[in-house]
Design a protein around this nucleic acid. Sequence first.
DNA 1: TGTACATCAGTGAACGCGCGTTCACTGATGTAC
DNA 2: TGTACATCAGTGAACGCGCGTTCACTGATGTAC
Lengths: 193, 193
Amino acid sequence: MRYPAQHKQATRERIVRAAARRFRTRGADGAGIAALMRDLHLTHGGFYRHFPNKDALFDEALQLGFVEISDYLEAAAKDAAPGEALKAIIDAYLGPKHCDNPGTGCPLAAHTAEVARRPRLSRTAFERVLRSQVKRLAKHVPGRTEEERQLKTAVLFSGMAGTLSLARTITDDQLRQRVLDDARSFFVKAVTA
Amino acid sequence: MRYPAQHKQATRERIVRAAARRFRTRGADGAGIAALMRDLHLTHGGFYRHFPNKDALFDEALQLGFVEISDYLEAAAKDAAPGEALKAIIDAYLGPKHCDNPGTGCPLAAHTAEVARRPRLSRTAFERVLRSQVKRLAKHVPGRTEEERQLKTAVLFSGMAGTLSLARTITDDQLRQRVLDDARSFFVKAVTA
DNA sequence: TGTACATCAGTGAACGCGCGTTCACTGATGTAC
DNA sequence: TGTACATCAGTGAACGCGCGTTCACTGATGTAC
């Protein structure tokens, strides 16, 4: 059946959105095309009308994921008192809401280790989308030059992603909370010192 | 054929050692039993004389991995000038040798994200081996109480693991080095401040 | 305005592949007599 | 001391399974006349 004009684009976006969530929740290897399409009440065959292969979808899902978390952090910064933007961002990043929802959370926490194992080409694609978000968030991070701010931003967020990832492995709720609380002051100190 | 008395134990240890390396290099999902055994000039069938399943091997490989990196860091601490032990540990953890050799490096950097996706039982096993190494390294970390030192140790190493993982995705050698250098002073400041 | 045809997003069977796991078997050596 | 048997680490074919990907097909709607 032939579909209305914007139908294809809309389906494509639904696929990317669902993939961004599934990949982060289950890992890129752990999330299959068939299950993804089934969630959208579609069949796996149709996937290839939208993407050449799974890797291409991963790249787009990654990009969406980075934009989502940056938006979330920017919103937290906007609500903060003057001069408290960076602290608000760190609190939001290491907050229970982010920790409990990896599916809509930072791709660094979800995908850095698996991307590190991928061939060069995948890694440069990762770098590209990461860099655009680093640039966006660097304005909140202190530093004499733009390069210094961007480097510090990369270290800060990759560091927080590591701790967030660890927190997600912890089964005891109280201990997880304690690790996150400790991490907040740790990273605030590191970035402002 | 019947083998000498300690033969079985020796083979078992060879399997764990090879697995610890392969899992960290390729990810737990990316490293198969058959290829692992082939590397040891054995066939996949024999694997099940030593382990009930792949998960059991992963748990042991994880433990070995944690011990290996802790040994490495303790050695670095021992060579350091008095009062410089923690700085030496951080420098070693974020050094090019560790970054370039994920196969013998910290399991936190390699496996945290995938463990976070596993069922509760796997996660508690992970917690157990992690905790023993955190206890071991906590003596180098400042803090008023033992609990405080251990929490800070967990945050410090998970944070460094996140940044190390990110560094491993970076294709440009110079930029990777710059990120690691920046991270060293970042984490030293955070932990001593 | 009515009709014939082209389009193309989506369908679902089928493909090859690698995986974890099982199992009947092998055969050199330890043990019982 | 010599012989028959038990042991069991390791072998390799076979299993079911889920995966990414391909492809001939469908059929409602847009377009050409």
